[in-house]
Amino acid sequence: MGVSNHLPCNIEDVVDLLSIPVVRSSGTQLHCRCPFCDDRKAHLNINLSKNVFRCNRCGTGGGVLHLYAEVNNISINTAYEELCRIFQSGEKAPEHPVRKAQTKVKQSKPALELASVEARDNTYSNLLSMLSLGTAHRESLLGRGLSGSEIIRLGYKTTPAVRSAKIVTELLERGCDLKGVPGFYVDEETGQWKLDIRATGIMVPDRNCEGQIEAIQIRLDKDTHSKFNTLTSVDKYYGATASCCPHFAGVTGEEDAVYLTEGVMKADIARYFSTVLGHPCAFVGLTGVSNINQYVRMLEELKRFGINTIKVAFDMDLHVNENVRKARDRVIQVGCENGFEVIPKRWSSNYKGIDDLLLSFIERRRITDSIFGRL
């Protein structure tokens, strides 16, 4: 390695001297944990051929002398003198007070207030009308028991993988207002609106009691932590935080009761299955079993419909999942306190969700029909 500034050492020698943790080496570069910030993922890049360093996290950078001086909190001249004594005369490195790593302060980006329900519904409706449903996603939904016509009616679409710039342009040409609509933000460099798609999957509209789309949930292709996330542009420049609503499926106000379940897609599927079975039921899906704010909003809206009975159809993993059980008990308590008749529904644990249970009824009927024929 070459010696910079006539020093008797190079930057790799100094990295070793300072005991900076090297996570990986590519031969010409070292990737280390930065001693200047609370780095845990090797953001410090050491260029061995140029004898320079830079942290991609906190921005600290420089040459050999800067690295030694910054770590020890001394001047460049003192750093030069000490390195010469250490590497030329073999002196022991002097002790310096340990420099405390600085926590990187995350700069908050300007955000917009959530757009009105009408603006979100208009933008999301136009967005979904421009997209298509991929073959793999369509086959997946058919495999869950939905019909082709029902999939079209529900308006499920595949997240766009390309041409997002054209999509944004067309939305603006259609007169859609993107300000405050979660999923859209402004590019800091160009000032242009952009669509923020963070993961691939099936886009599922979250509709309120009026049928308006207030948010879009995404059934993820890879569910490492969760099966669903919500289209958002939180932490983006002039982005917006998503706000989901209780999802109404088949609620007209003519019903005596609604079934309460977990999730937007589950409510849609369960509603369809009940219709296929000849007993169409109304469903409301919460985007989280413990989302009490959504639930309270649902209660107020049910009152306006004149519906006072709620049948709680949470997944049967409540027998082994304490969080689901507690959420179910809380739902019953709050519903009763608000004057509703709340009835918990149970079924065999062989079928986790209400959609699984209803699909089993459909499959049994198909078997019966195949054996005896329709009457």
Rank of each mutant, 00 (worst) to 15 (best):
L146F: 12
I152C: 08
E113G: 14
A42V: 10
P97R: 12
D268V: 08
Q294S: 04
S243L: 12
E341G: 03
G143A: 10
Q294K: 05
H225F: 11
V22D: 01
K100C: 02
R163K: 13
Y156Q: 04
I269M: 14
N51H: 12
A327I: 02
W347F: 10
L18F: 07
A270D: 04
T252F: 01
T103D: 03
T232V: 04
L195F: 12
I354W: 01
S26I: 02
L154H: 15
R54F: 13
T287I: 03
R330S: 04
Y259D: 06
K50F: 11
T287R: 09
H225T: 08
E254T: 08
N122Y: 14
N56I: 01
S149N: 11
N77M: 03
L128Y: 10
G373K: 07
E322P: 02
L112P: 02
R304D: 09
Q294R: 04
V98A: 14
V289G: 03
P205C: 12
E188A: 15
W347Y: 06
E113S: 12
E173G: 01
V23P: 00
V264S: 01
L375N: 10
G134R: 09
P160T: 08
I20E: 12
N229A: 04
K106Q: 12
T60N: 12
K104P: 01
M265S: 06
G339E: 05
F283R: 02
G373W: 01
I269L: 11
C34L: 10
T78F: 00
G27K: 13
G143Y: 12
S26V: 00
K92E: 12
F53I: 10
L358R: 09
C32Y: 08
R366V: 05
S108R: 14
S89E: 15
C281I: 07
A101Q: 13
P110Q: 11
I218H: 07
L112R: 13
V264H: 03
L171M: 06
P94L: 07
Y156T: 05
I167D: 09
E301F: 07
G191P: 11
G134Q: 04
Y185P: 03
R33V: 08
D206M: 05
Y259C: 14
T159I: 05
R328P: 02
G59I: 09
L65Y: 08
D268T: 05
G183W: 08
I151N: 14
V251M: 08
C34Q: 02
S125A: 15
K303L: 10
A165R: 15
Q107M: 11
P160C: 09
E189S: 05
I152V: 13
P205K: 10
Y237K: 06
R153P: 00
L286Q: 04
N72I: 06
N56S: 07
I292L: 09
V204C: 06
N229M: 13
A327R: 01
S19D: 13
E254Y: 02
V276Y: 04
I292P: 01
R364P: 00
K100E: 07
V105C: 00
K157P: 00
